[in-house]
Nucleic acid binder design. Structure first.
Lengths: 301, 301
DNA sequence: TAAAAATACTCCATAGGTATTTTAT
DNA sequence: ATAAAATACCTATGGAGTATTTTTA
């Protein structure tokens, strides 16, 4: 089963003659003969009845012909599509994103991108920042969009959005929300926290360091895996939480959550596109990164 | 684009490694390397990003992978189907049949055959007997079913049905249908005749020869290409006609046509399966011929 | 007798191997 | 330092050719 042999077969079928097929594909007649008999031997069936004048296809020949035609069409289509891939924005891309970008930032961006480039298909992997970083390094995702970046590596990093992080609490909590707190005043209150590895957690730890309050002194009563869960627990008055303003904007507007103001501290963290610059830069990848950079945070969910 | 190279590609994609792919398909790692780069050169795109640890598929690689999988499935299915063809009754067959068999005899037979063997597809070519004979010789049809057979050839012939030929006329014609005619009494009456080459015409000429009445003495007022047309003209009283009793049985029963009895002459002709014995005898062909032989003329249309 | 396919043989391109170097972590 | 891929080079299978024979209408 060799493509050259199948091609010879195809033309013998079409021309009804070994020698005419040979002419059409610029082979000698004996070569065509050997190709056909090689196929016949491999399949264990006669493909043509030779009557000295024409090559008459057997039922096996007829079946093979229709399949070979499909096969050649498939190959042709594949080559065509691949060569388009080199210049146009199409194909399959796997994005890795940490919780907040994946849940709150990416959906409208991807929706618009897919509207503009309908021949693209996107897979989205959601993990925490550290996982995304690793998946970007080892190639499980084509690029990442995360809230945490890490050291000593060779990934390309580009900041795409600056985010505002705040401390939140339920209005039912016995707190004066007009007061500006000193940070150490809050460390004995109960906190709900994201897990280690999350970008939010990382930003929190960095900020506490700046304030000379070791993370370990904080009273963490609950550690959760998702932003959504964190918000729900804080809404129910379990304790204080720390998250992006964007995420809770609606709750703040409706008064379901309150911001706890912190003196002289502006928690802030950014979101980054990260990718391996050694990987081949297909138009799909470049255009999608560019699109994310230009559109992220513009539309709200 | 060689199947071996595509196979190597397939396993590199699946294992994420050139050397592991090499192991799986019992090639050396360098061979796999050259196969992949040969494909990349041919397509003009990188298929994998090599990072020293894994082979990471590019969008082109992903696309090719899904197509290659389709392609291998197609090949596998084709081989499977062809090997079934060797033993089972399935595939495509082209039958050539002359007018009467095609119109009046074959339909119920083929319907039953296809019910029993649903994986068979039948093409039916309808021409006059001489055409069918030739198409069987030169392979345009796999076998023929005709009312006329010819000399000096190498086709296998098997009689499958004996038919009764009669002279018919419209009851409105001014004839005594109780009388038994002498043949030469009828030759001056107007005749509707099938064209030269038709089996019915051939039978008619043969019969006239036996009666020592040259065909040329007959008053032929109309020559038609189909049995159906002949019957219609006779029904309308244009003249006498000559055709198989089977064809006009219903009209005779209803009295729309009358038989003109001929003294001492029994026109008769048979139908034959004809085929080229040098062509490969696939189960499909053998079984279908056998089926036709056993069932033809049993059921009425 | 004339055509088409099969056979015999020769040749060389390339698939595939081994040994080694380069690359990347 | 280690593991993987690339490179260099060699070998041999089989694809493709020419010349010729066989087959069949």
């Amino acid at each position: 089963m060799d493509l050259r042999k199948l091609e010879a077969f195809y033309y013998v079928f079409k021309t009804g003659s070994f020698s005419r097929a040979a002419e059409e594909i610029f082979l000698s007649q004996p070569t065509v003969s050997t190709h056909i008999s090689s196929l016949e031997k491999e399949l264990g069936v006669k493909l043509f009845d030779r009557n000295g004048r024409n090559a008459l296809p057997t039922p096996a020949g007829r079946l093979l012909f229709s399949r070979v035609r499909e096969l050649f069409d498939l190959l042709k289509k594949t080559k065509q599509e691949i060569s388009e891939l080199k210049e146009q924005v199409e194909g399959e891309v796997i994005i890795g994103a940490s919780t907040i970008p994946a849940t709150y930032l990416l959906p409208p961006v991807l929706a618009n991108f897919l509207k503009e480039y309908p021949r693209v298909s996107v897979s989205l992997e959601v993990s925490d920042s550290w996982e995304i970083w690793n998946k970007t390094i080892n190639g499980e995702v084509d690029f990442g969009l995360t809230g945490g970046i890490f050291e000593d590596d060779f990934l390309q990093v580009e900041k795409v959005l600056e985010d505002d992080l705040i401390v939140i609490a339920s209005p039912e909590l016995n707190l004066d929300f007009t007061k500006v707190f000193n940070f150490s005043q809050l460390k004995t209150l109960p906190w709900v926290m994201r897990e280690k590895g999350s970008g939010t957690r990382k930003a929190m730890e960095r900020t506490l360091n700046q304030a000379d309050v070791p993370f370990s002194e904080l009273t963490v009563v609950l550690e959760v895996k998702t932003t959504e869960a964190l918000v729900q627990y804080v809404l129910n008055g379990i304790g204080l939480g720390f998250t992006s303003r964007m995420v809770v904007k609606d709750y703040l507007d409706k008064g379901l959550l309150k911001e706890v103001k912190i003196k002289d501290l502006h928690f802030s963290r950014s979101f980054y596109l990260v990718w391996n610059p050694r990987r081949e830069a297909f138009p799909l990848f470049c255009k999608l990164r560019e699109f994310i950079k230009n559109n992220i945070g513009k539309a709200r969910v």
